[in-house]
């Protein structure tokens, strides 16, 4: 098991993050750290700002505060590779895009209607195999099941191997077996590649089983720590009403 990932990233530090849209404050004063080799789960009620937080880290929306990447010896790393798996994908299911088209489009600038580069194609076939989706390469993206789509998204997101993997409720709308499978795969990635993984999730049971650190938010960080710490806190009970 490698102790270092590609660029030597050790932690992602979020400081004083805030997001305002119109007159609404979506996030304020958010401070936390994510470590490599750990799965950080973000939980909270609907509208708590979970997706907004992820999109701010991605740099997709304008925000206050900073996102800094630091190496083991405290040096700041400017650019890291980020992999992203979006929330249960809403897209046009009749769109004639094959799984291989989709994967190749994210890997190279060579238009996917030309004959693909052999090496890249082989790498993508391996990627599909690694997420348990062998044989799907010629299927239309819209013909896949929810679980298959999310695993294909994962195959895209982990090529090239990212230092930070961001997952936005990756298994909402996916059946229980598919969800469990997905979590196991992600969990394995954390071990194999020592990447930092941050995931928004609704499924508190799966979070309990797989997350190393939990962040409970509602516009700001209410509670952070390991699973037991957060799940036994008063803030957690106030948010989710005791039982899960």
């Amino acid at each position: 098991m490698p102790v270092e990932n590609g660029c030597g990233l050790c932690k992602v530090k979020i400081e004083d993050m805030g997001v305002v849209k119109g007159r609404d404050v979506l996030l304020e004063n958010v401070n936390f750290e994510m470590h490599c080799g750990q799965l950080t789960a973000i939980i909270g009620t609907n509208g708590a700002g979970k997706t907004t937080l992820l999109r701010s880290i991605l740099g997709e929306i304008r925000h206050e505060g900073t996102v800094a990447y630091e190496s083991h010896d405290g040096k700041v790393i400017k650019n890291i590779t980020i992999g992203y798996v979006p929330q249960h994908l809403e897209f046009d299911r009749f769109s004639p895009v094959s799984v291989m088209d989709f994967l190749l489009a994210g890997q190279s600038t060579r238009p996917v209607w030309l004959k693909p580069d052999k090496k890249i194609k082989e790498r993508m076939l391996l990627a599909l195999e690694s997420v348990g989706c062998s044989g799907l390469e010629n299927r239309m993206l819209g013909d896949l099941s929810g679980g298959e789509i999310q695993r294909v998204m994962l195959a895209q997101a982990i090529n090239p191997i990212p230092e930070l993997l961001i997952l936005d409720e990756p298994v909402s709308g996916v059946d229980m077996v598919g969800a469990e499978q997905f979590y196991q795969q992600v969990s394995q990635l954390r071990k194999d590649y020592h990447m930092a993984i941050v995931m928004v999730s609704h499924d508190l049971n799966l979070v309990r089983e797989y997350a190393d650190t939990v962040l409970l938010i509602n516009k700001t960080v209410l509670k952070q720590g390991d699973v037991n710490e957060v799940y036994n806190s008063a803030e957690f009970r106030n948010t989710f009403g005791g039982g899960i």
Binding site: G59, Y84, P86, L89
Partner: peptide
Amino acid sequence: SINSDLAAS
């Protein structure tokens, strides 16, 4: 055309 956040990433 598939997903703009994904494209950005």
